[in-house]
Design a protein around this nucleic acid. Structure first.
Length: 274
DNA sequence: GGTGCCCTGTGG
DNA sequence: CCACAGGGCACC
């Protein structure tokens, strides 16, 4: 489910709700979602710790803790986070509950249970979560056309697969890679080593602007977020190609095609995207 | 590089 | 019933 824009939306809602609060209790009903350390160590080490806030890195959610430790969460496909009163009806597939000093709870639910938590101690290198392998944020000043061309310009690999490579640029998933390539008018199957300098420049501009557009479309208040269980803030009404196979291209009216690239379904306009 | 796998739910 | 789903990793 969540790619960069959705994760950004989640942290903007959750941040003010948990900032400065301490964890009084951790209830883990499905230990497999705790990747590191052991679920019992995870629970024990978190109790009494204060959360300084929450930040996003790629699709990861990071909770810096007072004293220098950090809790890290990746929602993968179907993970969700909700801050609720303790008597709020629980979501199905709730696997971890953090009880907080103000009586509220932060709850992690995940139907498919692909999501994972990590806890990294102060001064410890994070060799567990995968954050260390991430490329730059799309909004980073180092994320430029020159960077893209230098790192991808010789790859004999579909550009769509390249955009999904988190070590090149952090945060793009299957939905937004299609949306980005549609806006950039580049066919998702094109090999990276065949893109022109002008196309790299276009991509370097479109990637951040497209993601920012969806972050803004996603904006939601905490009441609405809770009411919709953190599920209905998504961008689906604004997506131009993803989920629209067989419909008319919003630019030229041709029928949108679907294909598989790198094992992921991909929708594109055969006329607009060369 | 391609494939299978981790899971549950939904839609054809 | 089977195919597929917004992610990422291990494995030939």
């Amino acid at each position: 489910m969540p790619e960069l824009p959705e994760v950004e939306t989640i942290i903007r809602v959750i941040g003010p709700q948990i900032q400065g609060l301490s964890i009084t209790e951790v209830v883990i009903s499905h230990p497999s979602v705790i990747a590191h350390p052991s679920p019992e160590d995870f629970r024990r080490r978190l109790v009494g710790r204060q959360m300084e806030g929450v930040v996003r890195r790629g699709k990861f959610i990071c909770f810096p803790l007072a004293g220098g430790a950090r809790m890290i969460l990746h929602l993968r496909m179907t993970g969700g986070l909700l801050v609720t009163p303790s008597d709020f009806p629980p979501e199905k597939h709730t696997h971890v509950i953090f009880r907080l000093t103000n009586g509220m709870e932060m709850r992690f639910s995940d139907m498919r249970r692909f999501g994972r938590f990590w806890l990294v101690e102060p001064g410890e290198a994070d060799q567990y979560s995968g954050i260390a392998k991430l490329g730059p944020e799309p909004f980073d000043e180092n994320f430029t056309a020159a960077y893209l061309q230098k790192n991808l310009g010789k790859r004999r690999k579909a550009i769509k697969e390249c955009l999904l490579d988190q070590s090149i640029v952090a945060g793009i998933g299957n939905i937004y890679s299609d949306e980005i390539l549609f806006r950039a008018k580049i066919n998702p199957s094109r090999l990276a080593n065949c893109l022109t300098t002008a196309e790299w420049e276009h991509l370097a501009e479109v990637i951040p602007s497209c993601l920012l557009f969806y972050i803004e479309k996603n904006a939601i208040g905490p009441e609405e977020y809770l009411k919709t269980r953190g599920r209905d803030y998504r961008n689906t009404p604004f997506l131009k190609v993803y989920g629209h196979k067989g419909e008319k291209c919003p630019v030229c009216g041709s029928l949108l095609c679907k294909t598989v690239i790198g094992g992921r379904s991909s929708v594109y306009c055969p006329v607009c995207q060369k």
